[in-house]
Amino acid sequence: MTYSDDILMALADKELPADMAARVQAAMEADPDMAARYAIFVKSRAAMAGLRRTPDPAPEALVAHVRRLAAEARAEEARSNVVSLRDWRRIPALPMSIAAAIALAAGLFVGMQTAHDGGGSELAGLGQPGLTDALGQLPSGERKPLKGGGEMVVIGSFLTGDGALCREFEYDGPDGRTLVSVACRQGESWETRLTIAAQASDDGYAPASSLETLDAWLTATEASPVLSPEEEMAALQ
């Protein structure tokens, strides 16, 4: 029985199952030509041994790049944990066709509204009496009615890259509108950094699907993972 080069090579590379290897070995003993072809595969692999030395270490810049990507991945997964926190609290979701109005820190205001939503630019609610107190005291996950109507729930607390304590919360107005907002502590008061006004549907509000804006903001501010209840309580003191 004569075996092909591929089979002889597979024997040299220890890729053949034991029974097959034994058959090829036996055939070679009776066939010097085949044994010579086999030797070429053994020797050609042995010749490569010198190139198998440990490769040169990677440049520091590449290592640093991997470290950076890993840090970003951890931050990203921490943010998706914010979303799963929502799921856990069973806060129902808005339809994808959400009307969002985004108010950014410096008073920049961007409003968008869907055709059937007449009031996308009304961001009433954030001036509600009691809101500041609630931000300073309410643990994440607890819902609290506000004096001026409507109620709020804090989704989570985190620190921005520059160390400011911020809280993501939802305000559900008496008119059925929901605002998803981030406020950061500024001395004794809380300053709104971002607000997304979500058009309410019949069955609910704050949507994981519409939170790309929030995600972008969290990325830009290098937000920390969500604080644990203990960390949050300590930060609020």
Partner: peptide
Amino acid sequence: INLLPNLR
């Protein structure tokens, strides 16, 4: 990171 030298 351990694979970087081999990848290079």
